[in-house]
């Protein structure tokens, strides 16, 4: 059974079609990396999957629950707000720019949603949050405010915030792009650790070496299409499509493949 499914999604901004009939399935415990040049539609796909963007057409399914389906004329219809709120509990999203709540302490960034959205008991939530903070190597930072932390630390708080909701899967939208190069390692380490714990993850990334190492499957997107998809050894190390080769050639020169 797949944990997440997005089927035949079409999305256009005005005249510009950014997603052409794309389908992706993710199984439980699977790590999927989405790569591709900017403007390829990979971020839009992620935003459609996390419902920050509405699809023009297509289906969205989490754990066999339909968050969106097509009506008879082929237009997307979303489920009721109550259903969507529950379905949103199945996944977490980590942003490129962290988007931590600047006016909340680290602790409160983690606990606010579990307490007020999931209506869970404060003591239990705080105990879990403390454990997550420890796991992220942020012990002692519970009462710090985001602006007092480095970019890498902030992104680890953001990952912890997503995990505090106990999601079934996590989406990452270029989680290291806003970081200085020397800080990306600490984030990749955290994601690797999550992969070892069999966390289901979909990661949009530019870190080719990382994608090859950590992903079970790599999807290469360009121009709103999935150009190539498969095992990382095949897609990244030995691509069959010309466009994939061209794209990867730009990275190999920079040594980014070898993390």
């Amino acid at each position: 059974m797949s944990l997440f499914e997005i089927n035949n999604v079409k999305k256009a901004f005005g005249d510009l079609t950014v997603l052409h009939d794309i389908s992706v399935k993710v199984d439980e415990g699977e790590v999927v990396a989405i790569i591709g040049p900017s403007g390829s539609g990979k971020s839009t796909l992620l935003r459609c999957a996390t419902m920050l963007e509405t699809m023009d057409s297509g289906e969205l399914i989490y754990l066999d629950e339909k968050a969106a389906h097509n009506d008879s004329s082929g237009h997307t219809v979303y489920a009721s707000n109550t259903d969507l709120r529950r379905i949103k509990g199945y996944f977490g999203l980590v942003f490129q720019n962290f988007n931590l709540f600047p006016h909340f302490s680290v602790m409160r960034n983690l606990t606010e949603a579990p307490i007020h959205v999931q209506k869970r008991e404060r003591g239990e939530v705080e105990a879990e949050a403390r454990e997550l903070i420890r796991k992220m190597g942020l012990e002692g930072k519970e009462n710090y405010y985001p602006q007092q932390l480095s970019g890498g630390q902030q992104q680890r708080v953001a990952i912890a915030r997503a995990l505090a909701m106990n999601p079934k899967m996590l989406f990452f939208d270029e989680p290291t792009s806003a970081l200085d190069p020397e800080l990306t390692g600490e984030i990749l380490k955290v994601i690797r650790q999550l992969a070892q714990e069999k966390m289901t993850m979909v990661i949009v990334t530019h870190e080719m070496g990382f994608a090859r190492d950590v992903a079970d499957r790599v999807i290469f997107m360009d121009g709103g299409y999935i150009v190539e998809e498969g095992h990382p050894e095949n897609v990244i190390s030995n691509p069959s499509e010309e466009r994939t080769k061209q794209f990867l050639a730009r990275f190999s020169g920079q040594g980014a493949i070898n993390e």
């Binding site: 996390t50 920050l52 949103k88 988007n99 709540f101 006016h103 949603a113 007020h116 959205v117 999931q118």
Partner: peptide, 30 residues
């Protein structure tokens, strides 16, 4: 207040009212 704040709140499942009072309002005040 940056759009990312709204998006972060939306993904976490906050309602619009919760988002306004918990996230937007305090940042607006400052």
């Amino acid at each position: 207040v940056p759009v990312g704040q709204h998006e972060a709140a939306e993904v976490l499942g906050f309602t619009k009212t919760q988002t306004f009072f918990k996230i937007v309002f305090p940042q607006m005040v400052k």
